[in-house]
Design a protein around this nucleic acid. Structure first.
Lengths: 345, 345
DNA sequence: TCGCTTTATGAAAACGTTTTCATTTAGTTT
DNA sequence: AAACTAAATGAAAACGTTTTCATAAAGCGA
């Protein structure tokens, strides 16, 4: 046990009271040189490290924050987590991590655990920020939190996101400019994710504004990160009424869709264009590179944690969504729509 | 604050002592139906949740474990973390997460923080498991830990890994069978990673056994996950003495190398074969798919946490490395070596 | 040298639990 | 009905800190 040596032992060895030891450690009051040296000697001799538990109990500050995301293995979340953790560490904070694995009901359970651990605040991505019992619970407990990727509409919750509708519209604009009119929206259970829904909405708006029919929607059995079976996805793609472009609300799915298309003989982008949303870095390395909407994922994590830090130290922070800049990232996965081939030249 | 309501308030409302409340909560002793109901009423009315801090202080158990990895954004670590977290949660444990960002000196600092937080154990990947002050510190503090991905040779530390040498040899065997003889080992600061070093060693052994010269080694400025600049990598690749195959000790680097090769007009695999190590799932989706050695990353995380759990409850666990099964994953990124073209047919 | 202020220190309470020990109450046996 | 056992409960200590309050020592101007 690391906690075998307590402040009393240090005090005993240094021949002073525990109060003095505490003062030496925290520099919270002046101490004589003599006693300070004795205390420091005792500390290093005994290899004493103050217990954060004892400290937290007294100060009611755990210097710990919680992170809750749907999944670690999606690079989007992984990179935000890295950003959050970096800032948290810079503020002397530690990070408690949990994944919901895309189960909304786990959100509450996890929140309950983290509250019991007395986290001072949270950065989290929930399924639906406008309608979340987990967030209600946090509000009730008056524990500060910052949403990440969620873009709440009705509620006035603090969040860091990109403009999902605008991003989707921008991407669709590119597809439409390339002559695509039969565009399908391919998503995995997107109705359970507020941001996917917004991306769908942007997609619809872009098409209506261009005078095109609403996109065909394909909801695939693609839960989180790992494709269930590539063949299953390919089979589902076959059901589509030969769209010329596919828009996926996240990059990981787009990669799976590209692979599945290939497996059924559809060349990307010659036969079908595929675009994603997120901007994962691997998208740039592959061939064809993935056209997508880039989100500053790490910066979003950084920003979220900075806001949370402000909340934790009771700095004034106005609620609402902070929209960070997204940008269209061109890629070889989209190309001009093939000319209609039924008839002739 | 969630901690505003304490056990005393519950006791006051229920008209009993705090001891009884504790007994009701933990079911640690029998209570009369009458008092139990009153206590339960009080708990739900006050929305009382026991403080893990107070509890930890008394029981000296935090039910928390630490995870330390070089990076979150490498899918290999992300997926192990998911496995660790899953098992930890199943045992009612919470996970404290930190990344070293590949800075070995941060390991100690992080360990110190986690020890202060009184983690009951750790799952971690260090730079060099045979020579780590961070691990020495853990040994001294008698805090149990399980290494992940590290494959210590000299020390007798508990670890979960694949057989890195055998894996690399197996992969090289495939390349050699395809007729490659000029194979380069392309790594990023691999001397600071014990596993990369082992993979290098496997590479050398395979070539010697085949009567081939030692591989050319290229150490690139590829720190962690994000490629510094694709052009820089491409420029470095140009320095190589036209090898027919490149072996990268991790998949992320292999993807970057493929992209860089493409950018300087080298077709993969026509002009040069590229292979990786890790088995990240994206490698299967891209074209050409990445030939690599697959590691059961999530299962490794699961296994590591299971071992840690055993250690934490003082079950007998024999030290040493647990080697999980790796396997060669074929891919389109490697092909037969081009026939020597200097001279003619 | 006296009284004053400043400085260094210690005793003890407090934070929210669990748990031991003693005590009361109820239940059982004769 | 007495004596005993079993069950339910409470008082209080303990865990490792920080911090308030009081006190002792020291410095200092007169």
């Amino acid at each position: 046990m690391s906690g075998a040596v307590s402040i009393r032992m240090v005090a005993a060895r240094a021949g002073c009271s525990i109060a003095t030891v505490s003062r030496v450690i925290n520099g919270t009051a002046q101490t004589s040189d003599a006693v300070r040296e004795r205390v420091e000697e005792a500390i290093s001799a005994l290899e004493y490290r103050p217990s954060e538990i004892g400290r937290s109990l007294k100060t009611r500050k755990t210097r710990t924050i919680g992170i809750v995301v749907p999944s670690f293995t999606n690079p989007v979340f992984a990179s935000s987590i890295a950003g959050v953790e970096e800032v948290a560490r810079a503020h002397g904070r530690t990070v408690l991590l949990s994944a919901t694995e895309y189960h909304a009901e786990r959100e509450e359970e996890i929140i309950e655990t983290l509250l019991a651990k007395q986290v001072e605040g949270l950065v989290l991505t929930v399924a639906d920020a406008d309608n979340s019992r987990a967030l209600d619970r946090l509000d009730a407990a008056r524990v500060p939190y910052v949403l990440l990727y969620n873009q709440p509409a009705r509620t006035n919750r603090l969040a860091v996101s990109v403009d999902n509708i605008a991003g989707a519209k921008e991407l669709l604009g590119q597809l439409i400019a390339l002559g695509h009119s039969r565009i399908a929206f391919v998503a995995g259970r997107f109705r359970t994710s507020d941001r996917s829904l917004l991306r769908y909405q942007g997609c619809v708006e872009a098409m209506r504004e261009a005078g095109l029919p609403d996109p065909e929607v394909l909801e695939v059995d693609y839960a989180g990160d790992q494709p269930e079976e590539p063949d299953a996805l390919a089979a589902q793609l076959r059901e589509l009424r030969s769209p010329t472009a596919l828009f996926c609300p996240n990059d990981l799915l787009a990669l799976a869709v590209i692979a599945a298309s290939r497996s059924i003989g559809m060349k990307v982008p010659a036969d079908v264009s595929v675009a994603g949303f997120d901007g994962i870095s691997i998208g740039k390395m592959i061939e064809p590179s993935l056209a997508t909407i880039n989100q500053p994922t790490r910066a979003m994590g950084v920003r979220a944690m900075e806001l949370l830090q402000a909340l934790c130290q009771a700095d004034p922070v106005e609620p609402g969504v902070r929209l960070l800049q997204h940008q269209f990232r061109p890629g070889g996965s989209i190309a001009a729509a093939p000319v209609e081939g039924n008839g002739g030249t």
